[in-house]
């Protein structure tokens, strides 16, 4: 009998822990603000047409509690974990919010996924990956090593992203764009822009999108390559310069040596009415410019 009890107790200790399911809901403002924090696991946020916030998913075994509270137009969702504990705290949150809400999501390693949301998005993570859909609301992303993928669908917005080593990919985003990375690559695919600023130290920059009338595009890298292909007509003054790289352009004049005494190349010309401005520069990276 004693042996049976001992075995039972040991079995309970050794048994795999089961995450606790969650299913909670609060009334919310239609355009309020939702703050979400989760250390590890995932956060999936989607907009819906109800004036309430719903949280489902599961909490890691060692999670202390889920804080889910409303203060005025602000709702906080937070997975509280013990200090100095990183084991069995991985939690997966599925959050539905009014579609015009603004969200601020912070994670350490949890991935962030946002869709069908029209409000502003502030997404911060250390090492989680970010996937976000944008529908007109401004987006601000910060990451250390996590990759960021942003997909636009309708209308202009202001998008800013900053990573240390994470790659940033934008698809069908339009409006104003500002992306910086140290060693991550930046890819801009489709979309039309009025202002674009792309900067890396070692990462490559690829831009396959339109530049609107009087639009401005600046791309700078120290060691990365810069590859620009405009979709549609482009009318701008071009200032393209590299110290050690090559310049390859499928339109405009041939690049020239910037100096008789230095290895640099430069290419300066106007295309169309020249109302816009395209400024590209690298130290060692190659520069390519073309139109479809």
């Amino acid at each position: 009998m004693k042996t049976s009890i001992f075995v039972l107790i040991v079995s309970l200790f050794l048994a795999p822990a089961f995450a606790a399911d969650i299913n909670e809901r609060l009334d919310a403002d239609p355009d309020g603000r939702i703050d979400i924090f989760n250390t590890a696991g995932s956060v999936a946020v989607s907009g819906w047409d109800r004036n309430s916030v719903e949280v489902t998913g599961n909490l890691g075994e060692n999670v202390e509690e889920l804080i889910f509270e409303r203060d005025g137009d602000r709702i906080t969702i937070k997975v509280k974990v013990p200090r100095n504990s990183s084991r069995r705290i991985s939690s997966d949150l599925i959050v539905r919010v009014p579609e015009n809400s603004s969200i601020d999501v912070s994670t350490i390693s949890a991935d962030i996924d946002v869709e069908a949301l029209r409000g502003e998005q502030n997404l911060h993570t250390v090492s989680g990956d970010i996937e976000a859909e944008v529908f007109g609301g401004d987006v601000d992303i910060e990451s250390v090593s996590g990759d960021a993928s942003i997909e636009g669908g309708n209308g202009d917005n202001e998008t800013a992203a900053s990573t240390v080593s994470g790659d940033v990919t934008l698809l069908r985003v339009s409006g104003h764009l500002d992306v910086e990375s140290v060693s991550g690559d930046i890819v801009v695919d489709e979309g039309e822009f009025e202002r674009v600023g792309l900067e890396t130290v070692n990462g490559d920059i690829v831009y396959r999108a339109g530049l609107r009338e009087a639009g401005k595009l600046t791309a700078e890298s120290v060691n990365g390559d810069v590859d620009i292909r405009f979709t549609g007509k482009v009318s701008a003054r071009f200032d393209v310069e590299t110290f050690n790289g090559d310049i390859d352009s499928c339109f405009g004049p041939e690049p020239e040596r910037a100096s008789r005494y230095a290895p640099g190349l430069e290419l300066r010309f106007s295309e169309g009415d020249g109302e816009g401005r395209v400024t590209l520069s690298t130290l060692n990276g190659d520069l390519r410019i073309c139109t479809d």
Binding site: V126, S127, V144, S145, S165, V182, S183, V201, N202
Partner: peptide, 16 residues
Amino acid sequence: LSPEARADVETNLALI
């Protein structure tokens, strides 16, 4: 930060 994230930041600072 975690050791991995710390190493990532330090590597990139070294790149800069």
